[in-house]
Design a protein around this nucleic acid. Structure first.
Ligand SMILES: [Mn+2]
Ligand SMILES: [Mn+2]
Ligand SMILES: [Zn+2]
Ligand SMILES: [Zn+2]
Lengths: 151, 151
DNA sequence: CAATAACATGCAAGACCTCGAATTTTCCGA
DNA sequence: TCGGAAAATTCGAGGTCTTGCATGTTATTG
């Protein structure tokens, strides 16, 4: 009988997740972990496993691509994500108490939910004004969300 | 100066959307419109255009695939989506008033949000009990969400 | 009605994400 | 320490969704 095994990729992944503070794209995580140290698919599968254990939480860009965030010692919260630059910010919001209870009463089990806010952040609005006509949005899914090499 | 043009595919699409009542997958819509009458990409593009005009709204399966729903004469509402069969249901929920205002005050513009509830519906729980061991979930994205030919 | 500009469509290609099967690694007990 | 079972990783392929570009349609104007 075994839990989850401690492997090279997993160790590197956990270390990376701890260093990062907000929700990050898988591509970015893969980069930080080291492209060579493990396959992208492994990152996907490990994060899925971690998510089942409640160690990470998933959020989304406006285009639907996923972001992952480590959850140890941080309480449940939601984000606003900039449609232009992908920057995330905490939002002062909590799910009303009754909702999930009512759904349970209706017969639904294994409840979960997604709450995500989107907008254009102040910086991106400035940019939009100065660089008029330049398209600045986050590319859509099915397009390079890009690895936007870290500053 | 021109608005949107009235084309064969667009007419068929609107007719189809009016017939349907809940959120439906693109594949299903494409079927109903008639595989031959237009390309799948056209459906994607038209729905995107309709969404900009506020004629349709988008929701999501647990796996992230999109569902579209016509919005004429219906008021804003949210859904619970069965993780197993994809059935959707209205949820008694409204976004708290203050949230978007606070975000605006923080400098965000072009606000939007996604609120989606997921669970396993009663019918699917029954099935899960009788057909123990049979996997019944909705396939993940990157897997045939399938066209589950209509009954 | 004919010519033209603008818009819409179709096709092909690419990005993200997932799975199946083969291989490699980890773990555990002998 | 070694061998074997079980779990993890990798590779390849496929599904959803989006875009660029060439082509086809629509609307407008004379
Ligand atoms: Mn966070
Ligand atoms: Mn609805
Ligand atoms: Zn921004
Ligand atoms: Zn169900």
């Amino acid at each position: 009988m075994a839990g989850m095994r401690v492997t090279k990729p997993r160790i590197a992944l956990v270390e990376t997740l701890m260093k990062l503070d907000g929700p990050v794209s898988i591509e970015r995580i893969h980069q930080q972990v080291g492209i060579k140290s493990c396959d992208l698919v492994t990152i996907y599968r490990c994060l899925a496993a971690f998510e089942n254990l409640g160690l990470v939480r998933r959020s989304y860009l406006h285009n639907g691509t996923c972001l992952y965030e480590q959850t140890l010692g941080v309480d449940r919260h939601y984000h606003i994500v900039c449609k232009s630059c992908g920057k995330t910010d905490k939002v002062d919001y909590t799910l009303p108490d009754g909702v999930e209870q009512r759904l349970q009463d209706k017969g639904y089990s294994h409840l979960s939910h997604v709450v995500e806010f989107f907008g254009v952040c102040q910086e991106c609005q400035q940019v939009a004004i100065s660089a008029r006509g330049t398209s600045i949005g986050i590319p859509a899914r099915g397009t390079s969300v890009g690895i936007v090499t870290e500053a």
